[in-house]
Nucleic acid binder design. Structure first.
Lengths: 206, 206
DNA sequence: ACCTGAACACCGTTCAAGT
DNA sequence: ACCTGAACACCGTTCAAGT
């Protein structure tokens, strides 16, 4: 009892354990974290701001893998594409965490800083002020929607039998694995192609 | 005790109450449903397959508002646009339910039937077999991603102060309300425009 | 500073027993 | 058939008490 020689708990270990639990079960609980680390449930609260705090820590860990350097790529559309792919890849590495992150607002300064850079990039590219945020939100929806697809159970559609929905069954078997990737690529290409048309006609390169 | 003259519980009332709770709190529990309907917690289990069953009932209720008739519109791209808008509107009417529906597969026959029709529509329009499902999945991601945006808290980005992310703050204030709608419209337009280019060159109308 | 151990109000689920 | 009431194993959170 009392204080151990070497601390059992710290934020790093709590985060890692939570991510493991979510990967295994699709969810986590504070007592589960404590048990895995050999501590009492209450002890976790000395390191972390409750269950919600653990979710925030997981978000930071996952988002650390997003490569902000992609936003320095030129031209702007290649930068946005690279950012979107890096963003999605970071989430894809922890698919089952995604639903946990969807309902709480983004507070992590590192993530906000990347959005700030994205805004500057688009303004610099010549997008009108009201369009800038629309483009970013649409891109974010695209990334999260596709990432959610990865978190979905093996088959997002549970076909009762192939006879009631034969065409759907056939179409599904034709895509197979990589369906999520194909859909993301299609949507991203479509989106950036259309965004280019939003820009005032570019002057000829000098 | 025992059986009341007039039943306290049925699937309709359970579903309605669950939707109300989710609208108010963003979540629900079986005991909460029971309390609101003046029954014991255990009684709910006589009508519904546990908590997961209640989620399925909510999905069916929400999806009933999707207008499958939109898939009869011509040409195919107007049909897909109308379907996507109806789909999103149905979810938008119950924004906070969306996160609850994301992690469980679609089983509702009515929803599956609409996907079946969508597949037929795209095949009829001339899309190659491997492309059909990719297009549908991408459209679904788009709808769900945008719908999730509606479920998000007022401010998806919690800016600590306007000084650390000044451009983001400015861009955010420039979109204001309707930001979700604008982003959805942009993404949908972009997507369908690009899908048209996937099709073999159309023959001249006769 | 870090942890224990116990407490509290809440879950989801099951099931005998009642009418 | 429909509901009660009690049980069980689990949550999230708090807090005095120990070293």
């Amino acid at each position: 009892m009392g204080r151990p020689r070497t601390p059992l708990l710290d934020r790093e270990r709590i985060t890692t354990t939570a991510l493991q639990l979510v990967a295994e079960q699709g969810d986590f609980s504070v007592p589960q974290i404590a048990r895995r680390l050999g501590a009492q449930t209450g002890s976790v609260y000395h390191h972390v701001d409750g269950r919600g705090g653990v979710v925030e820590l997981m978000r930071e860990r996952v988002c650390d893998a997003i490569d902000g350097g992609t936003l320095d790529v030129e031209p702007w559309d290649r930068a946005m594409a690279a950012w979107a792919r890096s963003y999605r890849a970071a989430f894809a590495a922890h698919p089952r965490v995604i639903p946990l992150l969807m309902t709480t607002p983004v507070r992590a300064p590192k993530v906000l800083a990347q959005y700030e850079r994205a805004v500057r990039l688009l303004r610099g590219a010549g997008f009108a002020n009201p369009d800038v945020m629309t483009v970013i939100i649409a891109l974010e929806n695209l990334v999260l929607g596709s990432a959610l697809d990865l978190a979905a159970p093996e088959t997002m559609w549970e076909l009762p039998d192939d006879t009631s929905t034969p065409e759907l069954a056939r179409a599904l078997s034709a895509v197979g694995a990589g369906r999520a990737e194909a859909a993301f690529d299609l949507a991203l290409t479509a989106f950036l192609t259309h965004c280019r048309t939003l820009l005032p006609k570019a002057p000829a390169p000098d």
